[in-house]
Design a protein around this nucleic acid. Sequence first.
DNA 1: GTGCTTGCAAATCGTTTGCAATAGC
DNA 2: GCTATTGCAAACGATTTGCAAGCAC
Lengths: 148, 148
Amino acid sequence: MVGLAQERLLEKSIRPSVQRLSVYQYLLDNPTHPTVDTVFTALSPTIPTLSKTTVYNTLKLLVENNLVQTITIEDDELRYDANMEDHIHFKCEKCGSINDFFSPLAHNTTELIKNQLSSEFSPRKIHIFVWGLCKKCNKDSQSVHNSL
Amino acid sequence: MVGLAQERLLEKSIRPSVQRLSVYQYLLDNPTHPTVDTVFTALSPTIPTLSKTTVYNTLKLLVENNLVQTITIEDDELRYDANMEDHIHFKCEKCGSINDFFSPLAHNTTELIKNQLSSEFSPRKIHIFVWGLCKKCNKDSQSVHNSL
DNA sequence: GTGCTTGCAAATCGTTTGCAATAGC
DNA sequence: GCTATTGCAAACGATTTGCAAGCAC
């Protein structure tokens, strides 16, 4: 049996080297919007010769082939996401976590914007980013309030 | 008469130095989502002693005081926007221009997302980015098609 | 005079580039 | 063997930091 990662690479005529498979598989397994450094650090033990350049090259290749997308929710570094479905990204400004929302809202909103804009423009990709407090941090800050 | 820029700085207890007023006024006058470098280059002739560090410091200060927001529609550099209303940013992937949409769509979508998420989270800021072809580039590419 | 602001220079850090070594067909 | 891929080292560029000089109240 051939893995999903390998299958997708072959579909795009990308030679499934160990490095490429590992990077792509890592993104598929970890929908945590990792940075280049996170991916590199995570895979280094398994592939001791891995270089950061290869991680950069591989991610660039995957993005160009629409297997992975870049997430620009941070001011200072790029994140990567192998999930290509319409979804909203929520970043907690307290704990820094980035979570996904796959509700119909995300899909419907994306479609709505696409349709409204498509009379004049050709929208290709839509990203919706939300910043605020996540469930946990929200609760924590309420507890603090209550305990005062 | 005191200008709008100065008024807003004073409201936030920010000392309205020449540099700060110039940077903020530039953003108010040029809703083109400039980069740090663009702002610096534009103001340098008027303020010959201006340093890029001051532009960085000033923009950071304005962002912290909610007078300006950062736009992360580019993979590799930050842009700044003094317009704090709900609006959608559209980036043309051909000519690179970034345009605003203030349609009810932008406002309503933002409100919708805020409301839907607010049962569990505390959303503070929402950005909607759209990539594709702008009106002009869209027309150009169609002309090319027709002439084939 | 004291504290805030500015601006130069150096440092930092994410990312890209050049190029030689390596691996796969 | 030839081409694609990898990975090291150097370069690059945006941003931050340290700190001394200048400015405002």
